[in-house]
Design a protein around this nucleic acid. Structure first.
Lengths: 136, 136
DNA sequence: CGGCATCCGCTTGGATACTG
DNA sequence: CAGTATCCAAGCGGATGCCG
């Protein structure tokens, strides 16, 4: 091995040190499963620009169902990533905002988003080529 | 808002600039969906430490089924993240390795893993507290 | 060894209707 | 407005058996 950057090597080492046997109950796997959730990170990024109310989030993320929005917000609250504040007005309003923990994931997640926007064109190209060869 | 770091602010800005209306066909969403795949990132990290053969990967990731391993490897190959090399021995052997594109995701993904190992204890605590209050 | 094909259970998640 | 409750379809993914 090879042509990887030193930074990458470092992460690989840490990974190997932290995961042990990669069995399902390794704590990092647990967090990764959360991150893999279809909507979690999208909601975190939506709340990153400020606290928002339920239907306001819904409008900003058009293709989430109300059920999934409720459920994902509750999960994020359970994990201490989002706090929920109810205002006793009528009609009642509920505001969601990132906790410090929730806000702290923005940076590492931002790296991934940066990677995605830099490389999605490469992925598209690779996919076209792959599908072209499969058809031939 | 406001106790976020400047780096976080930068990512939030970029996010807002890049996603437009967050509709399902935004390219960043597309890449994020791939990353959200249950096994993709696990396999990338497994291959990060060097090229490996099919059953070797299976042994290192004990709880993936053969079907999902085949399928995920093919998807990664399609996306240009992994290359597949067949050796014409008997019995035949097949080696998978990261492409430069696949290797390039290790660094941003490493940031997320670092966050996970630093914060999973906070998440566990938050979860215990939340569940305790729910029971009360 | 490294797959592919089939079957099938179970979860995920959407649509709809109702509540405080 | 901000949910809860119920029903139901689609697909993810496991188990098994077969092939080159």
């Amino acid at each position: 091995m090879r042509t990887l950057s030193e930074e990458a090597e470092l992460y690989i080492e840490r990974w190997n040190a932290s995961v042990g046997d990669l069995s399902g109950d390794c704590p990092v796997r647990g967090v990764l499963d959360k991150i893999s959730d279809k909507w979690s990170m999208l909601l975190v990024m939506t709340l990153a620009s400020g606290p928002k109310r339920f239907n306001q989030i819904r409008r900003e993320v058009p293709d989430i169902s109300q059920k999934m929005l409720t459920q994902t917000l509750r999960d994020l609250q359970r994990d201490g990533m989002v706090s929920r504040q109810v205002f006793d007005t009528k009609p009642p309003s509920v505001e969601y905002r990132l906790t410090p923990l929730g806000a702290s994931i923005i940076v590492p997640f931002g790296h991934l988003i940066a990677w995605a926007s830099e490389n999605h064109s490469h992925i598209d190209e690779a996919r076209l080529e792959f599908d072209g060869q499969a058809a031939a």
